[in-house]
Write a protein that binds this DNA or RNA. Structure first.
Lengths: 149, 149
DNA sequence: CAGGTATCAATTCGTATGAATATATTGTGC
DNA sequence: GCACAATATATTCATACGAATTGATACCTG
């Protein structure tokens, strides 16, 4: 009843698109007994031999304590391992174990498949332009935030 | 160390863009003592005279119990009111009170300002194309999901 | 180097979250 | 019209979340 806002508010439309696209995969995750924060950690670890907690926090798009907890749970399940940094002993590095990598690969495959399915079902074919735009948006925003500090 | 996936995975880049764009506003929210789920509810209510819980759940992009709790907290603070449906008594309708509407308007103003600031700081000016693309993506996906059921 | 500050990540702990369930009301088939 | 499914929402409750703190290490400055 006020002037409209949300439909033109970028964070809102980003979140809405994410949710409708992610929903089916989140159901699969639940079936696998994997938390969303754990999935994000696994998906990142899969693309790195090992990574520090700080970098993992950034790329897994989750707060540091959330990542810390998720990694602890994954470690208990034998899916990841932690190593203290040698040069800088404050750092902890995390890496997938064999079984962790296997699970991560499987989940990534399912994520990809689910995404493809959803998109083709909606007659959407070329995503690459949109992905590029969003990556560019993120890069510019991140750069400008760094520049401020 | 595997073939890259995340940087081309739409849900990931959507979430990443959302986070970097939303971060500064979330800090403001915290200062106002408003939860994110509460913000989403208020922002939706602001655009409706009144709305059913089901519709609110959908548009606030949050699970039903989360919305139910958020509305309960907002009601305790006198920011929203609930009315039982007259025709269908299972429905509950929610609406802003005066003070709720005032808070919602203030928050929307700050959200808009924060977004504009972040974008201009990153030399990003025309967002409308991207917003349109994302809205179209959402509409197509939502339609195709409905068609399936 | 010693003291002070900054950084990294675990941990604490109160709270929001959300899956599952319960409750209430409305349609529906026979 | 009476059981029986379907729908809308509140509620329960175990758990993840995440703000704040702590502890430990590294960097810096005189």
């Amino acid at each position: 009843m006020n002037e409209p806002f949300l439909d033109g508010y970028l964070p809102y439309v980003l979140r809405r698109a994410d949710q409708v696209l992610s929903a089916p995969f989140y159901q699969l995750l639940t079936q696998h007994g994997v938390q969303r924060s754990e999935w994000r950690v696994l998906a990142v670890l899969r693309e790195h031999d090992s990574i520090s907690m700080t970098d993992l926090t950034t790329t897994a798009l989750s707060p540091q304590p959330t990542v810390s907890h998720a990694v602890a749970r994954l470690a208990e399940r034998g899916l990841v391992q932690r190593f203290r940094g040698t040069h800088d002993k404050r750092l902890w590095f995390v890496a997938c174990t064999e079984s962790g990598r296997a699970l991560a690969d499987k989940l990534v495959l399912e994520a990809h498949h689910t995404e493809t399915e959803a998109l083709s079902g909606a007659s959407i074919h070329d995503i690459s332009g949109l992905v590029e735009e969003l990556n560019s948006l993120h890069t510019k925003l991140a750069d400008s935030l760094v520049a401020q500090s």
